[in-house]
Each structure stands twice: as C-alpha cells, then as structure tokens.
Amino acid sequence: MQKVKTALLSYGMSGKVFHAPFLSFHTGFELVGSWERSQKKIQEEYPDTKSYSSLDSLLEDDIDLVIVNTPVETHFEYAKKALLAGKHIVVEKAFTTTVAEAEELHALAKSKGLKLAVFQNRRWDSDFKTVKAIYSQGILGDLVEAEFHFDRYNPNLSPKQHKESRNPGAGILKDLGPHLIDQALHLFGFPDAVFADIRITRSHSAVDDYIDLLLYYSSFSVRLKASFFVREAIPSYVLHGKKGSFLKSRGDVQEDDLKAGKKPDLIHWGKETPAQEGILHTEKDGAIIHKKVPTLSGNYYDFFEGLHDAIVYDKQVPVTSEDGLKVMQIIEASIQSNQEKRVMFL
C-alpha cells in the first residue's frame, strides 16, 4: 500500500488524540512528525518521528499531507502556506474564520490539483451514524422537525487562551457549532434560511458560549443548540416525522477512549454501551413499533481511509472544502442574524 507521508502542525490534544493514533494505525500513512513550539512530546510516543521547530522546516521536508490542527484563527494562513508548498491538507473545524477565506482555500487547492479535506470527525460518531441510518430508512415518514444538541455543564473558562480571548476563531459557534451544522447539512442538505440566538452566559467570558440556531427547510425545521449550562442532558438527537420519532443520546466513546490512551482497531472500536441505545417509536404497515435501537459502531478510521484513497487513487475526500464552505456560510449568516435579530435567507 502506498504510504502518505503526513505531518501535524501541533501535537496538543487534537494531534495526540484525534490524529496520531489513526495515522500510526492505518498502514497507508506514515506519521513523519509535528511542528512543536515549546514542549517536545511527539517523540516520546512515536520515537521514529521528527519534531519540527518551524512551519517552514516542516514544509521543506518530504511531506505529502499536512494536518492543520492549530487554533482556528491560524487555519487560513497555515493552510494557504501548505497548499502553496504543494502539500495536500486536512483542516480542522472551524474550516476558516470567514466565508471569503474558505472560498480562497477551495479555489487555491483546485487550481493546484491538491486535496483539501475538512476534519469533521463527528460524522463517524456512533450516535450520529445511528441517527443517519434511521433517517435514511424513511421509517419516520416525512420529517417535521429535528433537534441536535452538543451540551455540557462547565461554567469555568478554558485554560486555553485562544479559546477564551476575543479573536476571529473563538467562541462556541466556531468550536462546537461546526460539528452540529455539518451533521445537519450532511443529513438534510443546505437550508433556505437561518435564525440565530448567540449569547454569553458564563461569568467573565469574553466569547459566545451559547448558541441556538434554527435552520429552515421547505417543509421542516432543524434546531441546533450548544450550551455550557446543561447539568441534566436531554437526548442530543431528536427527530420527529409524520409517522414516528427517534431519540438518541450523545454516547460515542471514541474521544474518551483515545484520551485514556486506548488504540483504535477495526473490530471492537467505537462501541457504545446498550444503556445508550436510542428509542424508536413509529408505525410500519399498520403496526406500532416502540423499541430500543442498537447503536452502530463509530470509527474515525473511516475518515482516514477515505482520505488515503483520495490522495493515492484520486478519489473525492470524505469531507470536501465545499462542505466546509457551506458550514462557514451558515456561521456567517448566524452571526448576522443574531446581530440584526431577523431571519437570514441564504
């Protein structure tokens, strides 16, 4: 199998948890190293890798793919440099800070014949995969409404300054928002309009930490919510159709397992406990169905599998720059909606 030589632009939480374990496990990738500014950590876990002292030194090396996993406000600058250096890239969410930046990166990658993917790993969460499967079956009938939540209880400010300081990439809209928006667009397509309520709820917070977005489609609506003040969580996925409903908690175990140092595999990975199974209440052929639905296994490996095939066999990347651009269009429309207190038609 042809190996894709890959480098990370940081080895903090995302590099250590979401990228390195899969790049080292997948036989089609070679994890070459990471740009590390202060602490030099990558070689402790991956002794054969390099620790680069600068972005330029990384880009000058024999690298095929660059993972832009730095703070959001740096995504555009670093991604553009990597593309100009002739590297394929993966950019974490939020893709950029503006629609204009997303459009420029999309056009640049296309003009240079390079692959540009957005790391929307939550498409491969066990909970969302199960929601997608139920919706795709049509067993709920025509959709009336859906509601997706990414809620937490954490009134404290993050110790990471880039998350809490006023900068173009900070705030929950560009942190958790892209996950919710991408899942909605992936499932339902691009909406006709959006209305948004974006607020600051934590003491001493300088950035938004509460979002309530309402996406309008021709015959249904989708609500996307994220908050740091949800001590007792409700189901994270709620779908109501004209025949029935499906409710599912956010139960994917991958992030916690990766943080605990567990390594991915293709057999036992990403399995939720039965206690997290969703509830299906619907009607089929005149019979009422009310039952728990076994959760599908999640696995971020599938993103990297698709990414490898895109680079080596010239296939489409698993999450395209067009996907990232559409998410940014929803984010910008949401900001304007919140400012003007009105529905924004897209």
Rank of each mutant, 00 (worst) to 15 (best):
302 D>S: 06
249 S>N: 14
345 F>G: 05
3 K>H: 04
94 A>I: 01
93 K>H: 01
171 G>W: 04
170 A>T: 08
320 T>E: 08
317 V>Y: 14
26 H>Y: 11
86 G>A: 00
305 E>R: 01
95 F>I: 14
216 Y>N: 06
142 D>Y: 01
26 H>R: 12
138 G>E: 11
148 F>Y: 07
223 R>S: 06
102 A>H: 05
217 Y>D: 02
132 K>E: 15
252 D>Y: 00
284 K>Y: 14
47 P>T: 06
226 A>V: 06
117 A>S: 15
96 T>W: 03
342 R>S: 00
263 K>V: 11
190 F>N: 12
271 K>W: 05
72 V>T: 03
257 D>H: 11
211 I>E: 09
226 A>K: 07
133 A>H: 09
264 P>C: 01
108 L>R: 06
72 V>N: 03
38 S>A: 13
198 I>C: 11
122 R>S: 05
96 T>H: 02
202 R>F: 06
138 G>I: 13
181 I>H: 14
11 Y>K: 12
211 I>G: 08
108 L>F: 10
59 L>E: 03
92 E>T: 09
63 I>L: 09
8 L>V: 14
13 M>P: 00
34 S>L: 05
70 T>R: 11
140 L>R: 13
130 T>N: 04
183 Q>F: 04
27 T>W: 08
134 I>Q: 11
116 L>F: 07
84 L>Y: 09
56 D>F: 02
34 S>R: 05
235 P>C: 06
206 A>E: 15
194 V>Q: 11
60 E>D: 10
154 N>H: 11
70 T>D: 10
193 A>K: 04
237 Y>R: 12
196 A>K: 01
53 S>D: 15
161 Q>K: 00
259 K>H: 12
161 Q>C: 05
184 A>V: 03
42 I>G: 07
206 A>C: 11
240 H>Q: 12
168 P>Y: 01
5 K>V: 02
337 S>I: 08
268 H>Y: 07
170 A>W: 09
99 V>Y: 13
342 R>M: 04
25 F>E: 13
238 V>G: 06
244 G>H: 06
325 L>D: 04
15 G>N: 07
304 F>V: 09
75 H>G: 05
310 A>K: 02
